[in-house]
Structures are given as structure tokens and as C-alpha cells.
Design a protein around this nucleic acid. Structure first.
Lengths: 194, 194
DNA sequence: ATAAAAATATACCAATCGGTATATTTTAGG
DNA sequence: CCTAAAATATACCGATTGGTATATTTTTAT
């Protein structure tokens, strides 16, 4: 990894929490120079503009949570236990392994849905991939006979994702952590009834 | 209603769609003067700053949807039908009676949760009020014997709200309206099983 | 060690930001 | 109709915005 690559990564890591808390538009070049200790010239030597940093920061923050989840999933043997990773992980929303500033997908989706098409597309891909993982796990569970065959994998996947994202919003804005715990308990019950 | 009051209302109405699509921070004074045809001087003669406009715009947009919902609810006789208004209304998310730019609560919550405490509090109140309406409707339904007595009103209220908000996000960012319809169908099933 | 190349810093740009003091116009009451 | 007050417009402020051309430093390969 050459010097430039390392600096690029450094910029991404240092600005990631800012982008995820303040949002893309509200994160200024000044915020970025202060967080990195670098100058604007240096940043623009490695990225062509702010949006490109925002895009790579999104991917970085996303990977942070997806790799955490998939690691946890790989530790489970049954498909039920694999799916149960989601409510269990999100119930511990304060976990420092989570990106600072809340759910990357939710934050980005809400900010860009009417304004930044290229980011919107990126978020769409992330959601689709998440949905596909859940669909896969449910369908595999059906095939092994672990779940009932009449389960609609896509509907269930959407329900799990929607509830988690809604829960994140409710919890962050109210400050009530038990909202998250109650809702994750509900998701848990749903998964246990598959 | 004096002239100033009318102008104030005019500013709120004309800027409401902008605030709800671009967000508070990204809505500039210039956006506001262009949308109203007024000058900055005129706007600042009626509001003390941009945040105050944003606050009143939030209340305006919120009232738009809450009054639509409560009107619909008042038309229903059974408590089940009253609660069913929520998934039915949100399933028609394209309805022009909805504020432009998506769910006011969701948009505002995500933008301000880490940055604008006074707006965060306002959103928190809105959510609490929504939750209380649902809890009331469920408990009344229990008292009349319409619903089973072992229903946990608060948990159910949270579940309905979280699913709706998650659904709005998923639908807006993916552009897939059937996500919304599938998820509202799920909420409907939940309500029918009370 | 040195020279070429790559990476970073300096110093600047025009545009826009939110906000305001003051001048002008419009409104409303007598 | 006239006047006082209220409402709106004009013209400006300093600060900050994203971005860039150029100079300097640092790295890398020879």
C-alpha cells in the first residue's frame, strides 16, 4: 500500500464519524481538514471532490457494520440463530464497533433520496444486498426443514429491515434505549416463529 | 388575521416542501426567497432566523399528515378499523395530501438527532404523541372486548410506528412502491390479529 | 546520494452562506 | 385623505463554502 493509498484510507477513517453524524452536505472541508490534520490541497490530491470522499466513507462505514454482522453470523450453526444475530446485534446499539452517528444506511438514505442520485443508488444496492442475505438465510432454513415452507422470505426480510431501521430512528431521536430493546424482542419473536 | 400573520403563513407554506426534501441545513435563504418571491429582509421581519422557520415548517408539515389521519380515524367506528387507517393511508404514499419530500418525522429525526437539540425535542414530542394515540386506541379496543386483553399496547404501537417509518425509508430510496404495499399488508395483518 | 515523481502545503478564487441596518413602501385607523 | 405604524425591500456585512493553481516538501527508485 503506497503512501497515497494510506493517506486516502486515513482521510476516510478520520472523516467517517463526521459524515455519519452531520451528514454529507453539512460536513465541510474545514471539518475534514480539522479531523485529519491535513490541508485542503492534500485532500483534493487524493479525492476529486467532497462527494467522492462521502461515497468512500459510506462504503467504509457500511463495511464496518456488515463485516461485524457476517462475522457473528458465521459463528452460528442453525439458520434461525444466524438470523437472530440481527436483533441481538442491534439491541446493543451502543456497541463501539458500530459506526458513530447511527445507522449508515438510514442516515444516508434520508439525506440523499431526493437530492443525490448517485448516493441514492449506492444505498439502494446496500439495502438490496442486506435483503438478499436475509432471503437466502430464510430460504436455506426452509430447505433444511428448520422453518415452515409457507414463509414468504422477501416479505419477512423487508419486515426485519424496516423494523430495525424504524427502531434506530425512534431510539436515536427519543434517547430511549428500551425502545430498541422492545423492538428487537419483537423481531426476535418473529424469527422464532418462522 | 393581519398582514404579518398571512405573510408568515405564506412563507411557511411555500418553503415547507423545500425543507422536507432538502433538509433544514441544505435549505438556503436563497431557496426561501425564490420560493416565496420575498426578500431576506421580509422573511427576517417575520421570523427571527432560519431555525424558527424550520420549526414552524415542521409543525405545519406534521399537522398536514396528522390531521389527514385523524380525520380518517374519526370516520371509523370500530377501534380495529381506526388503527387500520395507518397502514391504509401509508400504502397510498403517493397521495398528494402527503407533504412533499417523504415522512416529516423521519426526515427531521435523522437530520437533527445529533445536531439540533431543540428540533430533536420537537420530533420526540411528535413521536410520543403518535405513540400515545396508538396506545389509546389499542387499550380502548381491549376495554370494549374488541381486542384480546393480553396485547401490550406500547410494544404494538412501537412496532407499528417503526415498521411504517422503515417502510417509508425503504420505499423512497429504492423507488419500489410495492415495498410499501407489502409492509403495510404486514402491519394490517398485525392489527387484524390483535 | 540524487533526480524524478509523487504527495502535500500555501495562498488564493468567486460564490454563497446567514444575518442586519436602514430606507422605502404598504397597510390600517381616525 | 392623511398620518403613524407596520411590513417589505435594498444594500450591505463578515464568514464560510467548495474548489484550484502553484509552490514546496517528501517519497521512491536508481
Amino acid at each position: 500500500m503506497g503512501k497515497a493509498e494510506r493517506t486516502k484510507q486515513f482521510i476516510i477513517e478520520k472523516t467517517a464519524p463526521i459524515f455519519n453524524t452531520k451528514g454529507i452536505a453539512a460536513t465541510s472541508l474545514q471539518d475534514m481538514t480539522e479531523a485529519t490534520g491535513l490541508t485542503k490541497g492534500s485532500i483534493y490530491g487524493n479525492f476529486k471532490n467532497k462527494d467522492e470522499v462521502a461515497l468512500e466513507v459510506f462504503r467504509y462505514n457500511l463495511k464496518k457494520v456488515t463485516s461485524m454482522v457476517s462475522e457473528e453470523i458465521s459463528r452460528q450453526t442453525t439458520f434461525r440463530d444466524k438470523i437472530l444475530c440481527y436483533p441481538r446485534i442491534y439491541a446493543n446499539f451502543g456497541d463501539p464497533r458500530f459506526p458513530v452517528g447511527g445507522c449508515v444506511i438510514l442516515n444516508t438514505a434520508i439525506e440523499v433520496d431526493d437530492t443525490l442520485p448517485f448516493m441514492c443508488e449506492e444505498v439502494g444496492k446496500a439495502i438490496n444486498s442486506w435483503k438478499n442475505v436475509l432471503i437466502f438465510l430464510i430460504n436455506e432454513g426452509i430447505q433444511t426443514g428448520e422453518f415452515r415452507a409457507d414463509n414468504n422470505a422477501e416479505d419477512l426480510a423487508l419486515q426485519i429491515i424496516a423494523t430495525i431501521e424504524g427502531a434506530v430512528m425512534l431510539t436515536k431521536v427519543s434517547g430511549k434505549l428500551d425502545y430498541m430493546q422492545n423492538l428487537m424482542k419483537t423481531v426476535e419473536n418473529l424469527i422464532n416463529s418462522l
